[in-house]
Protein backbone atom coordinates (compact mmCIF):
# COMPACT_ATOMS: atom_id res chain seq x y z
CA UNK A 1 0.00 0.00 0.00
CA UNK A 2 1.39 3.39 -0.93
CA UNK A 3 1.87 6.16 1.62
CA UNK A 4 -0.82 8.17 -0.15
CA UNK A 5 -3.39 5.39 0.23
CA UNK A 6 -2.53 5.03 3.91
CA UNK A 7 -3.05 8.74 4.58
CA UNK A 8 -6.29 8.69 2.59
CA UNK A 9 -7.49 5.82 4.75
CA UNK A 10 -6.63 7.63 7.95
CA UNK A 11 -8.50 10.73 6.76
CA UNK A 12 -11.53 8.51 6.09
CA UNK A 13 -11.31 6.84 9.48
CA UNK A 14 -10.91 10.26 11.15
CA UNK A 15 -14.12 11.38 9.48
CA UNK A 16 -16.07 8.26 10.50
CA UNK A 17 -14.66 8.48 14.01
CA UNK A 18 -16.30 11.91 14.22
CA UNK A 19 -19.55 10.62 12.69
CA UNK A 20 -19.72 7.87 15.31
CA UNK A 21 -19.43 10.45 18.12
CA UNK A 22 -22.15 12.57 16.50
CA UNK A 23 -24.81 9.86 16.80
CA UNK A 24 -25.98 10.54 20.40
CA UNK A 25 -26.20 14.23 19.48
CA UNK A 26 -28.27 13.46 16.37
CA UNK A 27 -30.64 11.26 18.42
CA UNK A 28 -30.99 13.74 21.30
CA UNK A 29 -31.59 16.76 19.09
CA UNK A 30 -34.00 15.11 16.60
CA UNK A 31 -37.16 15.74 18.67
CA UNK A 32 -36.20 19.38 19.12
CA UNK A 33 -35.63 19.85 15.41
CA UNK A 34 -39.07 18.39 14.63
CA UNK A 35 -40.62 20.43 17.42
CA UNK A 36 -38.95 23.61 16.22
CA UNK A 37 -40.32 23.13 12.71
CA UNK A 38 -43.82 22.45 14.02
CA UNK A 39 -43.78 25.44 16.40
CA UNK A 40 -42.31 27.74 13.75
CA UNK A 41 -45.19 27.10 11.36
CA UNK A 42 -47.61 27.37 14.29
CA UNK A 43 -46.21 30.82 15.10
CA UNK A 44 -46.51 32.16 11.56
CA UNK A 45 -43.30 31.07 9.80
CA UNK A 46 -43.49 29.53 6.34
CA UNK A 47 -41.82 26.14 5.77
CA UNK A 48 -39.07 27.90 3.81
CA UNK A 49 -38.44 30.36 6.66
CA UNK A 50 -38.26 27.54 9.22
CA UNK A 51 -35.74 25.78 6.96
CA UNK A 52 -33.71 28.99 6.51
CA UNK A 53 -33.56 29.71 10.23
CA UNK A 54 -32.29 26.21 11.03
CA UNK A 55 -29.77 26.35 8.19
CA UNK A 56 -28.33 29.77 9.08
CA UNK A 57 -28.71 30.13 12.88
CA UNK A 58 -28.22 26.41 13.79
CA UNK A 59 -28.85 26.87 17.52
CA UNK A 60 -31.79 24.96 18.96
CA UNK A 61 -32.64 26.83 22.16
CA UNK A 62 -32.21 30.26 20.56
CA UNK A 63 -34.45 29.30 17.62
CA UNK A 64 -37.18 28.17 20.03
CA UNK A 65 -36.98 31.47 21.92
CA UNK A 66 -37.00 33.37 18.64
CA UNK A 67 -40.18 31.84 17.23
CA UNK A 68 -41.90 32.02 20.62
CA UNK A 69 -41.32 35.81 20.70
CA UNK A 70 -42.23 36.07 17.01
CA UNK A 71 -45.59 34.45 17.80
CA UNK A 72 -46.15 37.06 20.52
CA UNK A 73 -45.49 39.86 17.97
CA UNK A 74 -42.53 41.21 19.91
CA UNK A 75 -40.48 43.94 18.13
CA UNK A 76 -38.01 42.40 15.63
CA UNK A 77 -34.89 43.97 17.23
CA UNK A 78 -35.91 42.47 20.58
CA UNK A 79 -36.26 39.02 18.99
CA UNK A 80 -32.75 39.29 17.54
CA UNK A 81 -31.38 40.54 20.87
CA UNK A 82 -32.97 37.61 22.72
CA UNK A 83 -31.47 35.12 20.27
CA UNK A 84 -28.10 36.81 20.82
CA UNK A 85 -28.56 36.51 24.60
CA UNK A 86 -29.39 32.80 24.42
CA UNK A 87 -26.35 32.18 22.22
CA UNK A 88 -23.97 34.35 24.22
CA UNK A 89 -22.39 31.30 25.91
CA UNK A 90 -20.73 30.48 22.57
CA UNK A 91 -18.32 33.38 23.18
CA UNK A 92 -16.75 31.22 25.90
CA UNK A 93 -16.67 28.13 23.64
CA UNK A 94 -15.07 30.15 20.90
CA UNK A 95 -12.35 31.48 23.22
CA UNK A 96 -11.68 27.93 24.45
CA UNK A 97 -11.65 26.04 21.14
CA UNK A 98 -9.48 28.66 19.39
CA UNK A 99 -6.43 27.08 21.08
CA UNK A 100 -7.25 23.69 19.52
CA UNK A 101 -7.91 24.69 15.90
CA UNK A 102 -5.50 27.59 15.42
CA UNK A 103 -3.39 25.39 13.07
CA UNK A 104 -6.22 25.07 10.49
CA UNK A 105 -6.34 27.22 7.31
CA UNK A 106 -8.46 30.36 7.82
CA UNK A 107 -11.39 29.18 5.68
CA UNK A 108 -11.62 25.91 7.61
CA UNK A 109 -11.61 27.84 10.88
CA UNK A 110 -14.43 30.08 9.60
CA UNK A 111 -16.52 26.96 8.82
CA UNK A 112 -15.50 25.32 12.10
CA UNK A 113 -16.82 28.25 14.15
CA UNK A 114 -20.13 28.14 12.27
CA UNK A 115 -20.92 24.63 13.58
CA UNK A 116 -19.65 25.35 17.11
CA UNK A 117 -22.62 24.06 19.15
CA UNK A 118 -22.63 22.84 22.79
CA UNK A 119 -21.83 19.18 21.99
CA UNK A 120 -19.42 20.16 19.20
CA UNK A 121 -17.37 22.18 21.68
CA UNK A 122 -17.54 19.62 24.48
CA UNK A 123 -16.61 16.60 22.34
CA UNK A 124 -13.76 18.50 20.65
CA UNK A 125 -12.46 19.63 24.06
CA UNK A 126 -12.50 16.02 25.27
CA UNK A 127 -10.39 14.99 22.29
CA UNK A 128 -7.91 17.81 22.95
CA UNK A 129 -7.78 16.86 26.62
CA UNK A 130 -6.84 13.28 25.68
CA UNK A 131 -3.77 14.81 24.01
CA UNK A 132 -5.05 14.21 20.49
CA UNK A 133 -4.99 16.78 17.67
CA UNK A 134 -8.38 18.19 16.72
CA UNK A 135 -8.28 17.89 12.92
CA UNK A 136 -10.70 19.50 10.46
CA UNK A 137 -11.81 16.15 8.96
CA UNK A 138 -12.66 14.65 12.34
CA UNK A 139 -14.34 17.90 13.46
CA UNK A 140 -16.58 17.97 10.38
CA UNK A 141 -17.35 14.25 10.78
CA UNK A 142 -18.77 15.24 14.14
CA UNK A 143 -20.48 18.46 13.05
CA UNK A 144 -21.85 17.69 9.58
CA UNK A 145 -24.36 14.93 10.53
CA UNK A 146 -25.67 17.08 13.40
CA UNK A 147 -26.12 20.03 11.02
CA UNK A 148 -27.72 18.04 8.18
CA UNK A 149 -30.15 16.18 10.44
CA UNK A 150 -31.03 19.41 12.24
CA UNK A 151 -31.91 21.20 8.99
CA UNK A 152 -33.75 18.25 7.41
CA UNK A 153 -35.72 17.42 10.57
CA UNK A 154 -36.79 21.01 11.23
CA UNK A 155 -38.09 21.17 7.67
CA UNK A 156 -39.94 17.88 8.16
CA UNK A 157 -41.35 19.23 11.44
CA UNK A 158 -42.56 22.33 9.60
CA UNK A 159 -44.29 20.24 6.91
CA UNK A 160 -45.74 17.48 9.11
CA UNK A 161 -45.89 19.33 12.46
CA UNK A 162 -49.46 18.34 13.28
CA UNK A 163 -48.56 14.65 13.28
CA UNK A 164 -46.15 14.72 16.25
CA UNK A 165 -47.42 12.33 18.96
CA UNK A 166 -47.26 12.82 22.73
CA UNK A 167 -43.63 13.85 23.20
CA UNK A 168 -43.76 13.70 27.00
CA UNK A 169 -44.54 9.97 27.31
CA UNK A 170 -41.53 9.24 25.11
CA UNK A 171 -39.35 11.33 27.41
CA UNK A 172 -37.93 13.41 24.59
CA UNK A 173 -38.33 16.75 26.36
CA UNK A 174 -35.68 15.72 28.90
CA UNK A 175 -33.15 13.97 26.63
CA UNK A 176 -30.89 17.00 26.25
CA UNK A 177 -30.35 17.61 29.99
CA UNK A 178 -29.38 13.91 30.32
CA UNK A 179 -26.91 14.23 27.45
CA UNK A 180 -25.47 17.46 28.86
CA UNK A 181 -25.03 15.81 32.27
CA UNK A 182 -22.96 13.11 30.54
CA UNK A 183 -20.77 15.81 29.00
CA UNK A 184 -20.34 17.56 32.36
CA UNK A 185 -19.31 14.22 33.92
CA UNK A 186 -16.79 13.53 31.17
CA UNK A 187 -14.74 16.55 32.33
CA UNK A 188 -14.58 15.39 35.95
CA UNK A 189 -10.81 14.68 35.82
CA UNK A 190 -10.04 18.35 35.20
CA UNK A 191 -8.60 20.44 38.04
CA UNK A 192 -11.26 22.46 39.91
CA UNK A 193 -14.07 20.44 38.27
CA UNK A 194 -16.22 20.09 41.41
CA UNK A 195 -15.89 23.69 42.67
CA UNK A 196 -16.67 24.98 39.16
CA UNK A 197 -19.73 22.72 38.80
CA UNK A 198 -21.04 23.72 42.25
CA UNK A 199 -20.49 27.44 41.56
CA UNK A 200 -22.14 27.29 38.12
CA UNK A 201 -25.07 25.19 39.34
CA UNK A 202 -25.75 27.49 42.30
CA UNK A 203 -25.40 30.71 40.31
CA UNK A 204 -27.50 29.46 37.39
CA UNK A 205 -30.32 28.29 39.69
CA UNK A 206 -30.35 31.61 41.59
CA UNK A 207 -30.26 33.55 38.31
CA UNK A 208 -33.01 31.33 36.86
CA UNK A 209 -35.26 32.18 39.83
CA UNK A 210 -34.44 35.90 39.90
CA UNK A 211 -33.27 37.31 36.56
CA UNK A 212 -34.90 34.52 34.56
CA UNK A 213 -34.11 32.59 31.37
CA UNK A 214 -31.99 32.82 29.20
CA UNK A 215 -29.62 34.97 31.28
CA UNK A 216 -29.14 32.19 33.85
CA UNK A 217 -26.87 30.39 31.36
CA UNK A 218 -24.41 33.26 30.90
CA UNK A 219 -24.53 34.26 34.59
CA UNK A 220 -24.03 30.68 35.83
CA UNK A 221 -21.23 30.01 33.36
CA UNK A 222 -19.46 33.25 34.27
CA UNK A 223 -19.58 32.33 37.97
CA UNK A 224 -17.79 29.02 37.32
CA UNK A 225 -15.19 30.56 35.01
CA UNK A 226 -14.50 33.46 37.41
CA UNK A 227 -13.97 31.01 40.27
CA UNK A 228 -11.29 29.23 38.22
CA UNK A 229 -9.67 32.59 37.39
CA UNK A 230 -9.71 33.83 41.00
CA UNK A 231 -8.37 30.67 42.69
CA UNK A 232 -4.55 30.55 42.88
CA UNK A 233 -3.05 28.90 39.75
CA UNK A 234 -1.54 26.07 41.82
CA UNK A 235 -5.10 24.77 42.32
CA UNK A 236 -6.05 25.01 38.67
CA UNK A 237 -3.16 22.89 37.41
CA UNK A 238 -1.88 25.69 35.19
CA UNK A 239 1.76 26.39 35.96
CA UNK A 240 2.79 30.04 36.18
CA UNK A 241 5.32 30.67 33.45
CA UNK A 242 8.38 32.86 34.08
Amino acid sequence: MSAEAISENSVKSDFWDGVRLSMPVVVASAPFALLFGALAVDNGFSVLEAFLMSATVFGGASQMVGIELFGQHVAPWLIVLSIFAVNFRHVLYSAGIGRRIAHWPLMQQAIGYFVLTDPQFAVAERKAEAGETVGFTWYMGLGLPVYLFWVIESTLGAIFGKLIPDTRALGIDFLLPIYFLGLVMSFRKRPLWLPVVVASATASIIAYKTVGSPWHVSIGALAGVLLAVILPPRHSGVEARP
Binding site: G96, A122, R190, G224, A228
Partner: peptide
Protein backbone atom coordinates in the same frame (compact mmCIF):
# COMPACT_ATOMS: atom_id res chain seq x y z
CA UNK B 1 -10.24 25.17 31.02
CA UNK B 2 -13.28 25.65 33.27
CA UNK B 3 -15.56 26.64 30.35
CA UNK B 4 -17.02 23.21 29.45
CA UNK B 5 -18.04 22.26 33.00
CA UNK B 6 -19.23 25.81 33.78
CA UNK B 7 -21.47 26.28 30.73
CA UNK B 8 -22.84 22.72 30.45
Amino acid sequence: NAVPAAVL
